[in-house]
Structure formats: C-alpha cells, structure tokens
Design a protein around this nucleic acid. Structure first.
Lengths: 122, 122
DNA sequence: TTTGCTTATTCGCATATCCGAATATATCCA
DNA sequence: TGGATATATTCGGATATGCGAATAAGCAAA
C-alpha cells in the first residue's frame, strides 16, 4: 500500500482515528462485537447515561463504523465490519509488546543507547 | 483475543489511540516508515515548525511507538515496529470500503432499511 | 569557553471535545 | 389522539489538546 496523500491522511484521521479517540466509543465497539444491541442495552451494558451513549453512537454512525436499524421503538446498532475490532486488537498487541519491552528495560536486560519514553506500570 | 477489561481498554485508548489522534503524528509515522529521520529532516519533510515536530515526537516516544537515538547533534527517530503502519493501512481500507459503500448508496444500488450516517465526497 | 547547530520545553491562547441536564423527536398502542 | 417508551439533540460549562512564539538545553568544533 502506497504512502497516503495529505488528503487521504486527513480523511483517515477525521473519519477513523477520531472514532476510536474515546474510551466509551471503544467500549461500545467491543459491546457491539459481542452482539448487536439497541441503545437501552448499551446504556445498561456500559452503565452510562443514555444521551452519552446516543452521542457516541452518532459519531460512530456518521463515520459508517456502525449501522443502525430501527426495530419498532428501539434502534439496534451493529458493527459495519468486524475489521474495526481486528484493528483494535492489533493495537492491544502493540500495547502489550511495548509494556513487555519496558518491563524488560526495567529488568535491565538492555538499556543501551536508545532514548526511552515514559514507563507505565500495569 | 478476549474482550478487553475496562483497565486494558483505558490503556489502549490513552496509550495507542490518542497517539494516532492527530494528522501530523500520522504523517510523522508514515515519514518514519519510509526511513528513519532526525528532527530536521522531519521538519523539512512535513514543512512544519520544529517545536511542533518535537512535541509530536515526544508524544509518540512516550508511548514507545517511535524510538529515538542520538547521533551527534541530531536525534534520529524510527518506528518501534512497522505494525503501527499495518494498523493505519487497515484503517485506510475501512475508510475506502465505507466511501465505496456510500457512493453505492448515492448511486441508489441499495438504500433499504439501514439508517445511514453522514456522506463524504472525496 | 565560546559559537553555532540541533532538539526540547514552556507559556498563553484558541479550539475541540466531552459530559450532565433538559428537552425534543419518533414509535407504538390503547 | 394521547400517553408511554425509546432514542436523539441542544445548551452550557469544564477539560483537554494543539499551536506560535520565545527560550532553554544538548552537543560539536574551534
């Protein structure tokens, strides 16, 4: 895949990256990965006020990351594609790798030459 | 991979997701994917003030997404792992899929039942 | 040490984002 | 239609984030 143009890069950011820019939204995505749910079910599952859930769902829906389907009085949301979960899981893997690496640094296995960043304890 | 705990989810967000939450940082990541570069080279490549570049690099370095290595007066940055680019490319694929899907909707191929979000023209 | 080059940090401000509270809209059913 | 349930939206304020400008800090060569 080629290096993205500046335009594509801005789209990538505004369209996808900002969507995963909030913990509640990530939580919603995993909840919908388990199974499609309506707003009430999400409100309950995340123990979060309904307007907050709806606002986050609007962000995800505007970006076509989730799709909404009305069923009677309620609206059932589901993931447009499970690919978004693959991406989040890949991020989790990077997270684990970097935490592993840092704990190795702390254990003094290799502290040569590299200027390291912040260290997080889990 | 199991559903993440709330703690892991917050780490995922604060540690990785926020890192790609700015267009300049994404641009930096692709620039470093092409080749490791020092701050001056990045400043030139992105046509962006040096303090801005350094601030973004600090964010990425604190999260161990890039590594810094001093070479004389300059500091050469490189990706900790190309996995971050795989992730960004996967996001670009989602972006393309969703734009395709929307242009199909506009072309009236299938506009049944789903409540759709915003439509973007590229 | 002084000078010059390179990178990092700080400060103040402008903007963006999120939330709680209140309210509006939509749908169903009696 | 009117009431009940479910979802969406708006408003105001608090917090976070990014930038320009200025400056500090690190390193090399003379």
């Amino acid at each position: 895949m080629a290096i993205p143009s500046l335009d594509e890069l801005d789209l990538l950011h505004s369209h996808i990256c900002t969507a995963v820019g909030d913990p509640k939204r990530i939580q919603i995505l995993y909840a919908l990965y388990e199974q499609p749910r309506n707003v009430s079910a999400l409100t309950e599952a995340l123990a979060t006020p309904q307007p907050t859930i709806s606002r986050h769902l609007t962000v995800l829906r505007d970006r076509s990351i989730v799709v909404a389907k009305r069923e009677g009085q309620s609206v059932v949301y589901s993931l447009s594609t499970p690919k978004i979960i693959e991406i989040l899981d890949a991020m989790r893997q990077i997270l684990r790798d970097s935490l592993d690496h840092k704990s190795n640094l702390l254990a003094n296995e290799d502290s040569s030459e590299a200027i390291t960043g912040e260290t997080i304890t889990v």
